[in-house]
């Protein structure tokens, strides 16, 4: 690679897309495991226990995921700042809605909303997990996951916050999924219509599924 790749506008977009693909893959895995909780507490416990105790996942994949998320966020903010600087004087009249969607123009807003949600999500699930393992020293507790999940969704305010956050996730994915393919150089009349349809499907099904999981456990706990 030339030295300028990661500093060039095209290079940064490609890296943004690659980190996006990675996060989409993680989201799919997260969704599948969470959805197990709807069918069976044992299945969910088993999958969560594997994810929570497997050394490769814990000490290799988890740091990679952290890096991927921070990279996606940092690069997004970096690009946005450069883009704002590219037009120092704004238009007095600008009909942006005539040629582009609100979603495509406001990825930073939906991204920041997802980031805020991640703060709560970490507080709810990741920090207690770290507390258990590294402070209290209880590395292996294969039955704790399902009761902890159900307990968190007893609070209706938390369920509402989660549901609203998943709407922002859907908005982000509605543009992000197909945009990542475009940035990575994949746009062809033969397969792009399919990518767009798959993108819309993913952006609606996955967040809707997460909403269903939160509401399901809330209703079951009452």
């Amino acid at each position: 690679m030339s030295n300028g790749f990661s500093n060039s506008s095209v290079g940064r977009k490609v890296l943004m897309a690659l980190s996006g693909f990675f996060l989409i893959t993680f989201l799919t895995l997260h969704f599948v495991i969470n959805f197990l909780s709807v069918f069976s507490a044992d299945l969910f416990n088993m999958a969560s226990h594997f994810m929570g105790t497997n050394w490769i996942i814990q000490f290799l994949m988890q740091p990679v995921l952290m890096f991927g998320t921070l990279f996606h966020l940092g690069m997004g903010i970096n690009l946005e700042l450069k883009n704002k600087a590219a037009r120092p004087i704004k238009y007095a009249m600008n009909k942006a809605n005539e040629n582009s969607s609100w979603i495509s123009r406001n990825m930073l807003i939906t991204g920041i909303m997802i980031l805020l949600f991640l703060g709560l999500h970490f507080y709810d699930f990741w920090i207690p997990e770290i507390q258990d393992k590294f402070v209290d020293g209880i590395w292996d507790n294969p039955t704790k996951y399902f009761p902890h999940l159900v307990h968190k969704f007893e609070d209706p305010i938390r369920v509402i916050i989660y549901c609203v956050s998943f709407v922002f996730l859907a908005l982000h994915l509605l543009h992000g999924f197909q945009s990542a393919f475009q940035s990575a150089g994949f746009n062809h009349t033969k397969y792009t219509p399919l990518i767009k349809k798959l993108g819309y499907l993913f952006a609606i099904v996955v967040p809707l599924g997460f909403i269903f999981i939160a509401v399901f456990h809330h209703l079951c706990s009452h």
Binding site: R12, K82, N83, S104, Q178
Partner: peptide
């Protein structure tokens, strides 16, 4: 692309506008 970046244009975010 190098010259485009030097001129101070922004980055594409695929809005399609």
């Amino acid at each position: 692309v190098d010259q485009m970046d030097q001129e101070g244009f922004g980055n594409c975010t695929n809005t399609g506008a």
